[in-house]
Design a protein around this nucleic acid. Structure first.
Lengths: 214, 214
DNA sequence: TTTAAAAGCAACTATTTATTTGCTTTTTAT
DNA sequence: ATAAAAAGCAAATAAATAGTTGCTTTTAAA
């Protein structure tokens, strides 16, 4: 992880903080749209309405700017997850609720799954273990708890492990957006229709629920 | 779709056909590794052990070479699908078999899911409808048939539509590889272990099977 | 054995793009 | 009002890279 580079200016005035934020949010859009290699510094500068050297003043290099963007976006996802309240009484509908909220998040934040996709294609070497440690949320653990309680209470299909469960949910909600462009051709399936999202959430909920009900 | 460019040389001798194939397979590796923009023509030439201009002689441009690679790889996937024989008596285990064979295919052909991923990120504009028409296999239709038969025979969970079914299978098998690098951090899940693949296939099979058995 | 296809070689063009430098202007805090 | 911080402006550097050109050598086929 790049640490505070000697050349990196630390903004002290309010105005400078704003500039830095403008850069970061523009970079977010451009990097998520074009990837690390496809993104252009000039485009980020233009979009942020600032001068190119401000970028180098505050972030010192394209790679480091990208690194900061990753941390910001992943952290956003981690913190957002905490917002979706899930209680014990939600267990029978938890799959439905989780899928809906994940789809909603991906829809609102394409930067997230896009940056994740670029990152995986590029070998995932931009973030180190220590970065991940700072990002990771406890939300998955919370879901796991409810899942296990649900098994004991008879609301959750006992044939399924939590790892299969969470992998399925992440896979579908991610794939739904990440592969929307090619999937329609490959599967003859139109994911744009509004009802299909509800269908998916509903049917997966029913599958993960106990064997003897709908 | 780029058609036979006037500048494109048509190989007549055996030797030339071989050269063209060497270029195509090297391009496949490099494009799938680095993407359209990250790939370097010089690297493709070096890997193919041929001279740079051979590429321009046979493919006329980087974009067109990429286009040819896409068609070749996607067609490979479509033709491979036909190999996995699935009969009516396989219905109770069909989910298991399909997942295993998809995972196996993705493992053997990372070019496929990687190129799919690049393509989706870049807006999926490299292939036109006519390209897809030539590529698409009838395998999905075949699976759909078995799925519906399974419902009638009581082997398949009637709460689930085929679109949810096929989407789930594609999602998981794709995501398993495409996001392996980040998923371990995000979900605290190690996908490298050998048993987990069998588990996933087994548990999804049980879920998609009728309500009243394992 | 001759001829045309195939392929190598090497230098060149033209463009793009990250990053730097020097200088001027604007804004903010004291 | 004045100094320091912040930001603009414009030109330059330096490297990478798609695509070209002209020429020579190798190979296969008749």
């Amino acid at each position: 992880m790049k640490k505070q580079n000697e050349k990196m200016k630390i903004p002290v005035q309010e105005r400078a903080v704003k500039s830095r934020e403008k850069i970061l949010s523009s970079a977010q859009r451009v990097f998520s749209q074009k990837g690390l290699h496809g993104a252009r510094i000039d485009e980020i500068a233009r979009l942020a309405n600032i001068n190119k050297q401000r970028i180098y003043a505050y972030f010192s290099s394209k790679k480091n700017l990208y690194h900061q963007v990753l941390i910001a976006v992943y952290s956003l996802a981690a913190s957002n997850e905490k917002i979706i309240a899930l209680r014990e009484e939600d267990i029978p509908r938890m799959t439905f609720k989780i899928i809906e909220s994940f789809l909603d998040f991906h829809q609102k934040h394409p930067e997230f799954w896009r940056l994740l996709a670029w990152e995986n294609l590029n070998g995932g070497k931009s973030l180190k273990n220590e970065d991940w440690k700072a990002i990771r949320s406890s939300y998955v653990d919370h879901i796991k708890n409810l899942f296990e309680i649900g098994k004991n209470q008879g609301f959750v299909n006992v044939n399924v492990d939590f790892s299969t469960y969470i992998l399925t949910i992440f896979s579908i909600t991610y794939f739904y957006f990440s592969n929307q462009l090619t999937i329609s051709h490959l599967l003859n399936l139109d994911l744009e229709s509004i009802t299909i999202r509800q269908q998916i959430a509903q049917q997966l909920n029913s599958m993960f629920a106990q064997n003897n009900n709908s």
